[in-house]
Design a protein around this nucleic acid. Sequence first.
DNA 1: GGCCTTGATTTTGTATACAATTCTGGGCGA
DNA 2: TCGCCCAGAATTGTATACAAAATCAAGGCC
Lengths: 247, 247
Amino acid sequence: MPTTRSRQGLAAVRKLRELVIGGCFKPGERLSELAAVELIGMSRTPVRAALQALAHEGLLEARSNGGFVVCDYSLADMLDAIELRGVLEGMAARLAAERSSGTAATRELHAILAQIDRLLDAAGVEGDDLYDAYVELNETFHAEMLRLAQSPMLERSLAQVTALPFASPSAFVKAGREQEVNRNVLIVAQYQHRAIAEAITAGDGVRALRLGQEHAQTAADSLKRLSRTGDVGRLVPGSTLLRRDTG
Amino acid sequence: MPTTRSRQGLAAVRKLRELVIGGCFKPGERLSELAAVELIGMSRTPVRAALQALAHEGLLEARSNGGFVVCDYSLADMLDAIELRGVLEGMAARLAAERSSGTAATRELHAILAQIDRLLDAAGVEGDDLYDAYVELNETFHAEMLRLAQSPMLERSLAQVTALPFASPSAFVKAGREQEVNRNVLIVAQYQHRAIAEAITAGDGVRALRLGQEHAQTAADSLKRLSRTGDVGRLVPGSTLLRRDTG
DNA sequence: GGCCTTGATTTTGTATACAATTCTGGGCGA
DNA sequence: TCGCCCAGAATTGTATACAAAATCAAGGCC
């Protein structure tokens, strides 16, 4: 959601985001305009706008004296972000149930579920293809649920949280690929998706809330597991924002 | 939370915010850079930054083709924003209970409560003085609760929501002054404050969540009441962002 | 030896000129 | 008459020069 819609402006935000998430700078390290200008090769004006945009995304932090530093988050912050997403998605599921119940409105939601079912049942699809396709459909499901909530305010709030790489609904999907849990995590997630869709369709706001909130908890579980096995730095998106000392 | 910390930059954001909230433009109306430049009397660069900042605050909306328009919210959007604040403050209260229970950590919270008590009991304080002082203490209470939650992520999310004038915790305090409800709304709010503080102190996260969420509902009730009496435009902060046709 | 002051240097903030894009109005043709 | 297209105008996007502020270093002072 960058406020500048021009070609270069978008490119600047994208490039800088890649660099920051890619770990080009240490957390807490100062990121000067001039350095950014030299890195992405355009003038100070769009670079400056990009820095501001990334600050609003939560990747950079604006210093009071001017300039920006790379955000340094703790593991606790990451878990908080995931829990926060859970709370907001729970609210989204509840509002969807209250405002968009019935089979007509939720047809699209069930269509997405069917697509995921086919993906998981298909024996031919394996490896990266499977996970890439799942990520795509997963994002679509969450977006559709949010649409059914009919709340621009909630949409905006959720967008801000999920802009953080480790708080995205699909952040830990690919991590499961390299863990022993493998396909099971996808099956559990899909079970939850179906339950959420049914609760929304039935207009059961209380259950939808509970499920939406609990659905995000699987991501928190994944993060905790990765933390125990020491794979956070390798498998968690945005782990480059993790500050060293506090883990 | 503007990303530009310079004198002029801050002044630009403040001036433009005043103009937008003050109803200088119609909701949905385009706000061109040049117009803004002439209105606040500085060059395009800080004005541009200010426009972006206000877009992130939710007062303006960035158009895909470039430029900005004043946001037009519906009454339903306002109620959603208040409910969203309730959900987030409920989470804050719960986290505070889980992470900062005990009398030592919550001493400041109870101190603020005592100040509000003295304010409400004092017979001498009346009118604007009373309400201004209450607003101040109310904001302090909410800030302290958020501090006890120990969650920068939640803090950021809540800051985004409460940046909207009608979603601020004190948005409807002054409105009560001109309504028949008068002092009662303050007394009820203070009762809820005390209950929240006690739940946090006792480490009762479930009750704290419930109370925090319900506390915001009083604002929603106020808005609904004002809507019935037709006083929204006169007494609700940020009501200038309300689109005409849908009320 | 530590700390403050002061000037040089770097970095950010502002203004403005120029380029590119989008909107507007009129004319032309089907 | 309606739609299309093309210039002109207006507006936004970009680059850069200049001003102000902050950082840093060295030197003097207590």
